[in-house]
Write a protein that binds this DNA or RNA. Structure first.
Lengths: 348, 348
DNA sequence: TTATAATGTCGAAACGTTTCGATTAAATTT
DNA sequence: AAATTTAATCGAAACGTTTCGACATTATAA
């Protein structure tokens, strides 16, 4: 039962001081090539690995990144943010970090329950996914903790963000429907205050105008408070109960709602896509399994997580206050819910 | 910009020594009630929270639990283990731990790439989910690192485990089909060497015998190496190509394969459940969205993760070598892929 | 040649806690 | 009253690393 070697063992065996060995480990300059090589050789001979506990205390760096999700996103096992989280995990491993996941109750407007990893200084930076109260931003700012938002922005706060090209996605969706000959194109979106949803809505309006298609209020439902499947069901009900003026196509701001909407339509004798063509947004698995399979806008969720971690690591390493805003691209995924055949996917 | 208070600040303000304050923080005995209360009061006045870095170094406890998953389970975004992981996260938070997730390449038989959290002693215990080479067990044993397996067992190694009642699940599934009048009940399972799958197979055989139903080899396919949807498709092909002797019902060892199997059957003009009745296993979301919706065996995935963390915390705290084996129950979920109506779900 | 700068190495302090053994004071037993 | 036990607190060492300033040596410039 021989103990794990520590930096002292390395130093002793190399006939050098602790400090020099430390300099080698951390790739600092001011060490001669020979010394460096010798130390490295001994490190690998001893199979030495610096203990996190020591480094953590001395350098104040934990090697962890915090990932904050609002409770509703987590507990509903919403696959969207979960995938982003898995993307962060993957990238973190590459960058020698670990991700500590935690959830906060979004409704608590002010920062009541501070995640333990913040209280204990157990993270070097924080990534927050989704809509969040701005007191969080203030809290982290005050404490000089690197912060990055994902799929959310507070433009006035000047925070670094990783966003989705929602506007472009809406353009792709609406153009696709228009290409199929549709003129009466409606919009369904829940939680319209979420920047991502409202951007999709803006993109919808913009593209409709651009294509000289008129927008009727009775084609639109943006009053649902959430984005679950049942909200899509309810939204469809609102639009299609009005028998006199109904759309022939719908752009729905997320797939879960699109699936709920399709359920309503099928229950009420509408054929998809013959009677109503549908395009969703997000490209979550459920849209692939629905009948008909859902045409949608793909969002690179894992990549978003990965980019977020890369940016975060930069922020931690460079201690820069430089603000970055990364917008990830989206693409149209054509399946059967539109009845429109195309040769090349619309990429614009 | 006032710094975070540390234990010294607390001690000074209380007029006590560091050690006494530490004893209070850690709820150790031998502190008088008055002192304890006074210290607690001051701690909350100062809003003091012990820094993880210091504790980590002094106590050698990181407050983290490692969660190891084989790469294939992770990257295929297999929802099964992901859910177990989310369950561990949830429970860990309650117990004041964090979970560090990592993947290892299963094919590397011997412990080639040791997860960084082990090298750096960054975890207090390890949970391993799914099939794993036994060199991992040896590695952790040698180093006295608490270990717990989930959905996997190496009976000869005497490791603590959290398992699924696979045998019982198989009984429920087969009994249900038999209750619907089926006599020719087949079995499909991939990765038959995985204990969970082979237990489901044993349960199938046991129940068939118990019900005096004969088992024909041509109803069975256990040769697929993996458990993906496509493996189910292929297995169905093997069974139903032989036109002369085909089963009227199938128990399929996991939902993903069941969905693949259903795809094959539908493509080949078989009606489900009229021509072939199907019961899956796992109750993953995809079975809920399939047409017809899949009758299956529910596995409490989040709870499994939660139990695993509870056990692990016990192992860490009590430093016990006591081996525990927890078997979680399963239940039949009746949907439409069997065409069998029941009043009360079969609970046996 | 001397002064100055650059390079390589080192000693010691610092990081924030836990914990062991010692010390003192109070309670109990003899 | 003395001896022993128990309770409460404390001082100091320990955990494993990083980093700052000092120092010695060598290279460069004046």
């Amino acid at each position: 039962m021989n103990k794990k070697p520590n930096i002292k063992d390395v130093a002793k065996k190399a006939g050098l001081s602790l400090s020099t060995v430390s300099l080698v480990i951390n790739n600092k300059s001011r060490v001669s090539k020979e010394t460096r090589d010798k130390v490295k050789k001994i490190i690998s001979e001893l199979n030495y690995h610096p203990q996190r506990s020591g480094r953590f205390l001395a350098s104040k760096l934990s090697g962890n990144i915090g990932f904050i999700l609002t409770e509703d996103h987590f507990s509903k096992s919403e696959p969207f943010y979960t995938r982003i989280f898995l993307g962060t995990e993957f990238e973190a491993r590459k960058s020698n970090y670990y991700v500590l996941l935690t959830t906060v109750n979004f409704n608590v407007k002010d920062t009541k329950e501070i995640p333990r990893f913040l209280l204990e200084s157990n993270i070097d930076g924080v990534i927050i996914a989704g809509k969040i109260g701005s007191s969080w931003i203030d809290y982290l700012r005050e404490r000089n903790i690197p912060l990055l938002l994902v799929d959310f922005d507070k433009p006035d706060k000047g925070v670094s963000t990783v966003l989705i090209d929602n506007f472009e996605g809406a353009k792709l969706a609406v153009s696709h429907l228009a290409k199929g000959g549709h003129k009466k194109i409606g919009f369904i979106g829940g939680d319209i205050e979420h920047p991502s949803i409202s951007d999709r809505y803006s993109g919808y309006r913009y593209t409709m105008n651009n294509l000289n298609l008129s927008i009727s209020d009775s084609y639109i439902c943006i009053t649902e408070p959430e984005t679950q499947s049942v909200n899509g069901y309810n939204a469809a009900k609102k639009i299609f109960q009005n028998k006199s003026n109904i759309p022939s196509a719908l752009f729905i701001a997320n797939d879960a709602m699109a699936v709920g909407c399709m359920r309503y339509l099928k229950e009420n004798g509408k054929k998809i896509p013959a009677d109503v063509a549908i395009v969703g947004f997000d490209n979550v698995e459920m849209g692939f399994l629905s009948e008909p399979r859902l045409t949608t806008i793909n969002v690179h969720r894992e990549e978003i997580g990965s980019i977020a971690v890369k940016r975060m690591v930069e922020m931690i390493k460079e201690k820069t206050e430089l603000r970055t805003k990364t917008i990830t691209n989206v693409e149209l995924v054509v399946r059967e819910s539109c009845g429109i055949k195309i040769n090349n996917p619309v990429k614009d």
